[in-house]
Every structure is written in C-alpha cells, then in structure tokens.
Computed example of a mutant assay.
Amino acid sequence: MEWLTDPFEASFVARALWGGLLVAGTCALAGTWVVLRGMAFLGDAMSHGMLPGVALASLLGGNLFVGAALSAVAMALGVSAVTRWSRLSTDTAIGLLFVGMLALGVIIVSRSQSFAVDLTGFLFGDVLAVRPADLAVLAAAAAAAAAMSLLGHRAFVALAFDPRKAQTLGLAPRLAHTAMVGLVTLAIVASFHVVGTLLVFGLLIAPPAAMALWARRVPAIMLGAALLGAAATAAGLVLSWHLDTAAGATIAAVAVGLFFLSALAARVRDHRPARAAAAAP
C-alpha cells in the first residue's frame, strides 16, 4: 500500500491527481461524442492547431489557456470556412489547416531562443506543475462541459447516429455540430497542460473507445470513460513516480493500454457464444 500511496504525499503530485481527474471527466464527456461521431481527425488537428496561440501567449506574457482557446477556435472556423467556400471535403480542409497552423506555430517558436522548454511542456504536458489556480480553471471547464453535454444531449445523440433525422426533428444539426466542436475544443484546451497536445488523445479517445465496446447507452459510456480516465491518471502518476518517467506520457500510455485490455476482453466475450454454438450437438 505504501508503494501506491507514497507518491501522493507530495503536494504537487496530489494537485496533479486532482487536475488529472478533472481532465478525465471533461475528456469523457467530449471524447464520447468524438468516438461516436467519428471526429478523431478534427480533434487531432485542433489539438495541434493550438500551437500558434500558445506560442504567442507565451512570448507576449499572456495567458496560455486563452491563447490555446483562441487558436483552437480559429482552427475550427477555418475548417468550416474552407469547406463552405470550396468544393473540398472536410478531411481535406482539416488537413490543410492542420499543416498550416502547425507550421505557423513552429515559425513563431523559431523566433524565440528561450521557448524550447515551454514547447516541450506544451507538446508532452507538465501535469506535475499544475497549480491551485489551474485546478480552478479545470474545474470550471469540467462544469461547462457537463452543462453543454446535458443541454445538448438530445441533439448530439441524433447528430451522432442519424443527422437527417436530427434535421427532421428540428434539432438544428448545424448548430448541434458547432456546439459539439465547441465541447471538443473545451476538452482539448483544458487537457493540453496536463498531458500535452501530442498525448491529449490518450484521455480524449482511449477511455470512451474502451467503454463503447461494452456499453450501449451514451451516459454509461461517459461514466465508464470517466472512471477509466481516473484510473489511468492515478496509475500513471504512481508509475511515473517510481519509474522516473514523464508523468503526462505515462498517463496517456496507461489509458491506451486500458483500451487494448478492454478490446481483448471484448474479443474473448464475443468468441465465447460462437464456440458454444459450434460445440452444441
């Protein structure tokens, strides 16, 4: 038990745990729709598209969360504009903006000789540096994500499974899609400080994908994903403490590992009825 509890006696690790738990809850709410709606590529592009905003905020001494949010919103609006103004597919527009925003961020970073350490934290996370003020921001983001999920639940469900029916029911699918993108943006912006933009998908996609193999109701997927994300956070912090590894990367790796364990268990579950039927006389 001491092996499990010793890391959390340090105040910065305890804060990291609380920060990770809040992020896990936010990512469970948004990640469920990412998985069900098939928005993984957009989420990935938006997570990397935050680099210009974060770079500018860091160089100008501004708030990193505000810079990340503005850059992510610009990325989402840019994808929508390119899709509407041209005949290109959404995937093509996402790919173009993805490369453009990432290149712009690298250019901004290259203008500074002192941004290398900050860039490393941005890409790979710095969960052990979470401050009490950051916990307040993460709690506000989790509350906002919960409110958005609750208010938009009916429209999100219709949009995820049958967009044409959503239109028929008068649920404004375009507005629902915009709100869903906003929810994903909120989760990514809230998460990058904990696990970094390169690893944010560890908590955004892996827990909901793992639960989607077992649960059939959206609330059950969200609850299970939050629990899996919380377990990945706690286990990742313990392992990183004893193995002296990067905390954010370890959390993401544990989350992905839990998905593969869930997928393996689901495969065994699905093969049992087939074997039983084959063995029956």
Rank of each mutant, 00 (worst) to 15 (best):
F8K: 01
F8L: 12
R15L: 14
L17K: 03
L17M: 14
L17E: 10
W18R: 02
G20N: 10
L21S: 03
C27K: 10
C27G: 14
A28C: 13
L29R: 01
G31R: 05
V35Y: 09
L36A: 15
R37I: 00
G43L: 02
L60Y: 01
A68H: 09
S71T: 15
S71Q: 12
M75H: 15
S80Q: 15
W85F: 08
R87T: 00
S89W: 00
D91L: 00
A93L: 01
L96T: 03
L102F: 15
L104N: 13
V106W: 03
V106K: 00
I108E: 09
S110N: 13
Q113E: 14
F115G: 00
A116H: 09
V117W: 08
D118C: 06
L119F: 10
L119S: 07
D126H: 14
L138F: 03
A140G: 14
A142R: 05
M148G: 12
L150C: 11
L151G: 00
A158G: 08
A158Y: 05
A158D: 05
F161Q: 06
P163C: 05
R164H: 09
R174V: 00
L175K: 12
H177V: 03
A179H: 08
G182I: 08
G182V: 11
L183M: 11
L183G: 10
T185Q: 12
A187L: 09
F192R: 01
F192C: 07
G196T: 08
T197G: 07
T197R: 05
L198E: 13
L203K: 11
A209I: 03
M211K: 00
M211S: 06
M211C: 04
L213G: 07
A215D: 11
A215E: 09
R216D: 15
V218L: 06
L223P: 11
A225W: 01
A225K: 02
A230N: 03
A234F: 03
A234T: 14
A235Q: 02
G236F: 04
L243V: 07
A247R: 04
T250G: 06
I251A: 07
A252E: 03
V254M: 06
A255R: 11
G257W: 06
G257Q: 09
S262D: 09
A274N: 08
A278V: 14
